[in-house]
Amino acid sequence: MSDMLRAPAEIKYADELDYLESVDTGPKPSTWRLSPRMIRTFVLGSEPSDGLDREIGQKWFGERGIVERAVVTLASDRGLLLIGDPGTGKSWLAELLAAAVSRNSTQVVQGTAGTTEDHIKYSWNVSMVIGRGQSRESMIPSPIMTAMETGTIGRFEELTRSTSDVQDALISILSEKYISVPELEGQDGIVFAKPGFSVIATANSRDRGVNDLSSALKRRFNFVRIPVVTNKASEAEIVRFRTEELLRRHQIDLEVPPTLLDVLLRSFGDLRDVAATAGSDDQRLESALSTAEQIGVLEDAVLHGTFFGQRTLTATTLGSSLVGSLARRAPEDSAILTKYLTNTVKPRSEEEGGEWPEFLAGGLDTLKALA
């Protein structure tokens, strides 16, 4: 893993997956590496009632029912669509599920405006076609086709960002479970999906209206909605867990003080309240104020303090990072943050003290620099 900037889940947690597979006696689909119960344990962590002789850490923080519905869907003939606001952990859950089911989470298609039908079916090695003609050897299978041929999980990120033509091409894959290759004849002209194949797609609920899914495609998916985390304790645990992972990746040995984590959580909570009561888009931040963005703010502050500060996290740096990360539009976002710091944080710093005065100073200084 030291040679990888970011190891996929099946490599990062290979030891846990090996252990769970060795003790797994539960019923499972024939090609799955783990049973549904063990997949739930891998994703949500172990409990004393599981009877395991080692602890399995929690990796995704959400309701048990969401994970169970997702796993049941993968065991059926339908695709799984994880839908929710930005930063709710859709992609991370999809990666964990693919790693637990087939020990391969890297068969991914990223949906964009430039995604074509070739990206989900196949393309050709032009030099081999010129030299030898079209054949299975000269074909370049897409990640989805590879998943079909190996009976594993294929992933499609940001499905609603891709065009309707690409979405339509996915319909036949999900319903017929094969891909026709008209350029080839005989058995080579059809690629059939093997048992165990399924597709996990994600969709951003804020992209509604970009490229809406057709009714036909919707029928091929089971929808599992990932809600925004509203419980402060759960959100604090997510931020702490992901930040610790990032610090280990950067090989930084630094503790995040609970008081500063509380400042970050309360600030995002305040700004979400502002967004909820805003009368127009100009009165709310462009940022979705997601849990993922909180993690980004905290990582930025930690790295800045490590490389340019006293190798510690301070409230001043945290305030500066929050403003620097969230002030994306000028002058709209700057005005919203100025109003928030002046009308909410300043009275709080005078009343509560603690980390708030330095947090206020860091935020205001950065706003001045951006002006």
Results as ranks from 00 to 15, higher is better:
Thr277Glu: 12
Glu21Asp: 10
Asn222Glu: 10
Met148His: 02
Ile11His: 04
Glu355Tyr: 10
Glu137Lys: 13
Ile171Gly: 00
Gly363Ile: 04
Arg37Gly: 07
Leu97Gln: 02
Gln251Ala: 14
Ser321Thr: 05
Lys346Ser: 11
Gln58Arg: 15
Ser105His: 00
Gly84Thr: 09
Gly84Pro: 07
Ile130Ala: 14
Glu21Phe: 09
Pro347Phe: 03
Gly269Glu: 12
Glu244His: 12
Gly324Thr: 06
Ser290Pro: 11
Ile190Arg: 14
Ser349Lys: 05
Thr316Ser: 11
Val297Asp: 01
Lys90Ala: 04
Leu341Tyr: 06
Ala147Arg: 03
Pro8Arg: 07
Pro86Leu: 02
Leu360Lys: 07
Val224Leu: 06
Leu44Gly: 05
Ala335Lys: 11
Gly362Asn: 05
Thr112Gln: 08
Glu158Trp: 05
Arg54Gly: 02
Trp92Asn: 11
Leu20His: 08
Leu318Lys: 08
Ser46Asp: 07
Ala361Lys: 13
Ser267Gly: 09
Ala113Gln: 12
Ile56Lys: 02
Gln58Leu: 09
Ile238Cys: 03
Val109Gln: 09
Leu81Tyr: 01
Ser334Lys: 13
Ile11Gln: 11
Pro29Ser: 04
Arg155Ser: 09
Ala14Gly: 00
Leu74Trp: 03
Glu299Trp: 06
Ser164Lys: 13
Ser321Lys: 03
Met128Arg: 15
Ser22Cys: 05
Arg78Ile: 02
Gly279Asn: 05
Met139Gln: 10
Ala100Lys: 02
Leu370Ala: 12
Gly324Asn: 14
Ile173Val: 15
Val345Leu: 03
Val228Thr: 15
Gly324Asp: 11
Glu158Asn: 14
Gly186Arg: 04
Leu265Gly: 01
Tyr340Val: 06
Lys368Leu: 12
Ile179Thr: 07
Leu247Ile: 08
Gln167Ala: 08
Val181Lys: 08
Lys28Pro: 01
Phe268Tyr: 15
Lys177Asp: 00
Arg348Gln: 11
Arg240Thr: 12
Ala147Asp: 01
Asn222Ile: 09
Thr106Gln: 14
Lys368Met: 10
Thr88Val: 15
Arg240Ala: 11
Trp60Val: 10
Phe42Ala: 01
Gly131Phe: 02
Glu351Cys: 00
Arg78Met: 12
Arg328Asp: 06
Thr230Trp: 08
Leu93Ile: 10
Val224His: 03
Met148Ser: 00
Ala98Gln: 02
Thr202Val: 10
Thr338Val: 00
Ser198Pro: 04
Gly279Val: 01
Ser214Tyr: 09
Glu158Gln: 13
Thr312Glu: 14
